[in-house]
Amino acid sequence: MNNEKMLNLIREFPNLVKMGYSLTDSTLDFSKKTITNIIYAGMGGSALAGDVIRDFLFPFSKIGFEIIRNYNLPEYAGKNSFIIISSFSGNTEETISCFKDALKRGSKILAVSSGGEIERIAKTNRISHIKLPIDIPPRTAFGMTLFCILRKIESFYDNQELKNMIADVLMRMDDYSFDYKNAKMLSKMMQNRIPIFYTDTSFSSVGRRCANQMSENAKHFAHFNLIPEMNHNEIVGLEMPKILKKSVVIFFLSFRQDNSRNKKRNLITKRIVDKNSFVTISINFEDANPLFNIIDSVILFDLASYYLALFNKVDPMAVKRISLLKNGMKK
Score class of each variant (00 low, 15 high):
residue 230 M to L: 15
residue 219 K to W: 12
residue 217 N to T: 14
residue 206 V to L: 04
residue 251 F to Q: 02
residue 245 K to L: 07
residue 227 I to C: 04
residue 235 I to T: 09
residue 233 N to A: 11
residue 214 M to C: 13
residue 236 V to W: 10
residue 217 N to Y: 06
residue 238 L to F: 15
residue 237 G to I: 12
residue 240 M to S: 13
residue 214 M to Y: 15
residue 221 F to T: 10
residue 233 N to R: 02
residue 222 A to C: 07
residue 236 V to K: 06
residue 239 E to Y: 14
residue 223 H to C: 09
residue 225 N to L: 14
residue 238 L to P: 03
residue 209 R to Q: 08
residue 250 I to S: 01
residue 225 N to W: 11
residue 241 P to R: 13
residue 245 K to G: 03
residue 235 I to A: 06
residue 251 F to A: 05
residue 240 M to A: 10
residue 219 K to M: 09
residue 216 E to N: 01
residue 212 N to F: 07
residue 246 K to H: 12
residue 228 P to G: 08
residue 211 A to V: 05
residue 219 K to Q: 13
residue 222 A to W: 05
residue 237 G to Q: 04
residue 209 R to Y: 07
residue 223 H to K: 06
residue 207 G to Y: 08
residue 234 E to T: 10
residue 243 I to C: 00
residue 227 I to F: 13
residue 215 S to K: 08
residue 220 H to G: 00
residue 252 F to S: 06
residue 224 F to I: 11
residue 212 N to T: 13
residue 245 K to M: 01
residue 227 I to K: 01
residue 218 A to S: 15
residue 218 A to G: 12
residue 220 H to R: 02
residue 206 V to H: 00
residue 219 K to G: 04
residue 245 K to H: 12
residue 220 H to K: 09
residue 214 M to P: 00
residue 210 C to D: 01
residue 242 K to R: 08
residue 223 H to M: 15
residue 226 L to I: 11
residue 223 H to Q: 03
residue 221 F to Q: 04
residue 208 R to T: 09
residue 217 N to K: 07
residue 218 A to T: 11
residue 239 E to N: 14
residue 240 M to P: 00
residue 220 H to F: 11
residue 241 P to A: 08
residue 228 P to L: 12
residue 231 N to D: 15
residue 243 I to V: 13
residue 224 F to G: 07
residue 218 A to K: 09
residue 214 M to V: 06
residue 241 P to V: 14
